[in-house]
Amino acid sequence: MELWRGELRWPIKSSFVEYVRRSGGKVLLEGGAFVDDEEFAYPRGATDTAWLSGDTPMGSASFTGAVRLTGHGGMLDVSFRNPQLVFEGEDARLVVQGEGGELIDFASCEIGTPLVRDDVAEWLGVRVILTPEGSRVFNGMYRPYSEMDSLNFTLALGRAQSPREEPA
């Protein structure tokens, strides 16, 4: 079954975000990302290949928008842009886009089994473990294999319509 619509919700590392705010830094939202219930939310992107095989997501799910954290007169500037979940069985890789457009293998995720109801698949409390590349995004402030805050994501289930098909 093809997956479409949905969103990714992730506080990133709430202690880090709070530090940025307390130290006079800024939290900037770009490209459709928004804050809801103290989580950053990224809407589902149009360019992905996600589908469900039983309860297991396959392919990748892309999300749009960016959260940018700045401070210390420009010495701190960290972005989490256009995240993507690349599914690998019971796990996924969280990939973010760097400032120059390069893809960064930011974290590994233990996704488990979704809760499916009303044509929506929902994954809650997904563990996010920082990769060495993700550690470099933070300039080593968090060591490789450190745990970030868990994320949640939802994907609506449905059949994608081919551009040649006419609505019924």
Rank of each mutant, 00 (worst) to 15 (best):
F106A: 01
D91Y: 07
L155C: 10
T154D: 08
G59E: 07
G71L: 03
R81A: 15
M58F: 12
R81L: 08
F63S: 01
A41Q: 07
T64F: 05
M75E: 14
I104Q: 02
V116Y: 13
W51L: 14
L130F: 00
L124Y: 10
G65F: 00
G6F: 05
A121S: 05
T56E: 09
G54C: 07
V95K: 02
D37E: 13
G59H: 06
I111D: 00
E166N: 13
P43I: 06
E18I: 14
A168S: 10
R159C: 08
R44F: 11
I111S: 00
V116G: 02
V17Q: 00
V86N: 03
V86K: 04
V116I: 13
E147G: 15
R127T: 11
R22I: 05
G59T: 03
E122Q: 12
D48V: 06
D119C: 12
T47N: 13
S79T: 13
Y142K: 07
Y19P: 02
G71Y: 02
A46D: 15
P83D: 11
P167F: 14
E133F: 03
P144D: 03
L155E: 03
V17F: 06
Y42F: 10
E18Q: 15
A160V: 12
R164C: 15
E147T: 11
N82W: 05
G140L: 11
A160K: 15
A33V: 07
T56G: 04
L3E: 06
A50R: 00
E133L: 09
R81T: 10
I12R: 02
E38V: 15
L124W: 11
V120W: 05
A156S: 10
R9A: 09
G31I: 06
F153K: 01
